[in-house]
């Protein structure tokens, strides 16, 4: 069986998604490469993915918990609260930074071989998922350490993981395609990641944020899609002690879907000129 294709300017490929499926092995292997390369020539290797969130948590606990005296809802120790927020945030942040640099970082591949380009940012987000899973295991370790029983809502956690994945994939797709043309975005991403950590409810609960900002603007806080995701994570772990503000959750979800849509559209539109522009 042989495939027949037409190469024409502006031809929308009818079987784009099918093509993506056909190239899935490349997707696996690129993800595998990124995972494998990540800790090459390091001494402690994969321990870094444990150490990083753990150290961040300790610093946060010290600065915000001890110095700034942020409090946590009764029954949840502050460290645990922070870690539950850091978990999705770091997944999002690494996913986003890796994805937005992915096309430019794989310049040689793009200018020398054909494959559906979407594989590249997708595989880089997957790579950060590996880090995330390690951190998740650590979270369970911490739950035991703090002798906290996770709530029954934990079964919904996969949904929020998917949500976080889509958030970083959507924005990542958008930024990485723009980055091919305008390298300005390379400088924008670290900034987003840095600011985002402080405005997202990582060091505090979103209730706390709600108590500071005017009630009318409460909903607006969830334009930051990670606010919804982090709330969701905490809800899964701590149940009704950290309730979900559903209107906000839906707004976050909507923002994620819109970004995903914009991301895919921009990416598809620019995809064919990547090799010329990169």
């Amino acid at each position: 069986m042989s495939v027949e294709i037409f190469i024409e300017p502006g031809r929308a490929e009818r079987n784009y998604w099918k093509d993506l499926w056909r190239y899935r092995e490349l997707f696996y292997i690129l993800s595998w490469r990124d995972v494998k390369v990540r800790y090459k020539q390091t001494i402690i290797g994969v321990v870094w993915s444990v150490l990083r969130p753990l150290l961040t948590m300790m610093i946060f606990t010290f600065i915000f918990g001890q110095v700034a005296k942020f409090d946590s809802p009764p029954g949840i120790s502050y460290g645990l609260l922070v870690f539950a927020g850091l978990l999705p945030w770091q997944f999002f942040a690494t996913g986003l930074s890796e994805a937005s640099n992915s096309l430019v970082g794989n310049e040689r591949l793009i200018s020398k071989v054909y494959f559906p380009r979407m594989i590249i940012p997708a595989s880089s987000v997957i790579t950060s998922l590996v880090d995330f899973l390690i951190s998740l295991a650590l979270m369970f370790g911490l739950l035991i350490w703090y002798q906290t029983v996770p709530s029954i809502y934990l079964v919904f956690l996969p949904l929020f993981i998917i949500m976080a994945f889509l958030a970083s994939f959507g924005v990542g797709l958008w930024l990485t395609s723009l980055n091919v043309k305008f390298r300005d975005f390379k400088h924008v991403v670290p900034f987003i990641v840095q600011i985002g950590l402080y405005i997202s409810p990582v060091a505090f609960t979103s209730d706390k944020a709600a108590s500071i900002i005017p009630a009318k603007l409460h909903l607006l806080y969830y334009v930051n899609p990670m606010a919804g995701v982090i709330d969701g994570f905490r809800w899964c772990f701590f149940g009704d002690k950290t309730p979900i503000y559903w209107n906000g959750m839906f707004l976050s979800l909507a923002v994620i879907i819109i970004f995903l849509f914009i991301g895919i559209r921009t990416f598809r539109k620019m995809e064919k000129s990547f090799a010329d522009l990169i």
Partner: peptide, 12 residues
Amino acid sequence: ITEPTTGKVFVK
């Protein structure tokens, strides 16, 4: 790898 500006190619 790159798309043509005009014309078309059939590849089997």
